[in-house]
Amino acid sequence: MALSGVGFAAVSLASGFAGLVPLMFIAGLAVAPTATVAASVLGNSVPAGARTEAFTWFASANALGGAAGYLLAGSLAELLSARPVLLTAAALLLLGAPISLALPRKS
């Protein structure tokens, strides 16, 4: 989460394709591990008979959140510019990292 936040903050400073692509790669490095861990937590926290439904809700929420994010970010970037949108995304990710560490853990 924090890696993506730092990556998005760096992307906000990029100018041109050559600077943007490697920084987006860095920002995206945390996406697959985050999805993997989230799926693992979900699978371990739901009874076996309810996993299909739980994963369906999980995937639906992820898809809806992604679509809403594209819509909101695109609209704001068009209105303001890309930099404040990227910095807001970075700030949310960086704020979310310590919050996620403070959540109770299942033993």
Rank of each mutant, 00 (worst) to 15 (best):
S45W: 08
A89I: 15
L79P: 01
G5C: 07
A82G: 12
A68Q: 00
F25T: 13
A59D: 12
R83Y: 04
V11C: 12
M24T: 13
I26V: 15
S15A: 13
L29C: 14
A91N: 02
G7L: 11
F17V: 09
G66L: 08
S60G: 02
G65C: 06
V85R: 01
T34N: 06
F58N: 12
A82M: 10
Y70M: 14
G69F: 05
P47E: 13
A35Y: 09
T36W: 00
L76C: 11
R83S: 12
A9M: 04
E78I: 01
S60L: 14
S15D: 15
E53A: 10
F58E: 03
G96M: 05
L42Y: 08
L101G: 11
L103W: 08
A30Q: 01
S12K: 04
A89F: 07
L95D: 06
A89C: 08
A27L: 01
F55L: 12
R105N: 08
S107D: 10
Y70L: 14
P47K: 12
T36Y: 00
P47G: 04
L103V: 15
T36L: 13
F8S: 04
L79E: 10
A97H: 07
G74H: 11
L92S: 05
S45N: 11
P47Y: 10
R83A: 15
A91S: 05
F17D: 00
T36C: 05
M24N: 05
E78Y: 02
L95Y: 02
L64W: 00
L79Q: 11
P98Q: 04
I99Q: 04
L29I: 10
